[in-house]
Design a protein around this nucleic acid. Structure first.
Length: 218
DNA sequence: GCGACAG
DNA sequence: ATCTTGTCGC
């Protein structure tokens, strides 16, 4: 893996690509095929293993699953996560039997310092509608949402609402939901909640997590 | 200078 | 993310 990274160049690319993000609903609603993607780093991080799980919406029945791996190219750098994970994720996504209409990503969308998290990057790179589903905060401030499923609070940064902090299940740590591409924030929250009938993470992402990581079947 | 920092 | 065992709570 590259020992040094030209962070200035990557940040510059994020700034120009961020202008291409569409934060309005521009997809079929409701969608019929939704995918979840995630990546893991086996072998001390030398390998990047991405997984994509395609499900029918809103039934959440699995239609196809793909695991794709390649040598890791970059280290993890806060704010530049997408350059490290995207190549393998694109490889997995391309190998699905059918293209998804919407992709749920493990990580931020516009809730990013330059408004270009991995969900935005994946969306602009493929043209697909995407939503960022973060398990923790990268930037921005927010009030604590109520304890019940569905409770939410605005995630604000630089005086702008960049996402919503949402309780996906009763009494669990909230999810950081933000626009990736071609979806409005309100629709993003609605779709994520519909994809989360039982666990903290939306089903497509949870399944991709399990497929990529070293867990057990269940 | 100090603190924060997706996965 | 990854390294790692038992343990507290519903």
């Amino acid at each position: 893996m590259a020992p040094s990274v030209d962070t200035r160049a990557l940040i510059g690319r994020q700034r120009e690509l961020a202008a291409q993000v569409i934060d309005r609903d521009d997809l079929r609603l409701p969608p019929e095929l939704v995918a979840g993607v995630d990546a893991a780093f086996p072998d001390q991080g030398r390998t990047t293993r991405a997984a994509a799980v395609l499900m029918r919406f809103p039934e959440l029945e699995t239609v196809d699953e793909v695991v794709f791996e390649q040598a890791t190219e970059l280290p993890y750098i806060p704010g530049l996560l997408s350059f490290r994970e995207l190549p393998a994720i694109l490889g997995a996504l391309e190998r699905l039997a059918l293209p998804p209409e919407l992709v749920l990503c493990d990580g931020q969308g516009r809730a990013h310092p330059r408004r270009f998290g991995i969900a935005c990057h994946l969306g602009v790179a493929t043209g697909l509608a995407t939503i960022g589903v973060g398990k923790s905060r990268l930037c921005g401030q927010h009030d604590e949402p109520g304890p019940e499923k569905g409770a939410a609070a605005d995630l604000v940064d630089g005086g702008e609402v960049i996402g919503r902090v949402v309780r996906s299940r009763d009494r669990v740590r909230p999810l950081y939901i933000s626009v990736g591409h071609r979806v409005s924030l309100a629709t993003a929250v609605d779709l994520v909640l519909t994809c989360t009938p039982r666990y903290r993470l939306p089903e497509p992402v949870r399944r991709a997590d399990r497929l990529a990581g070293r867990h057990s079947p269940a």
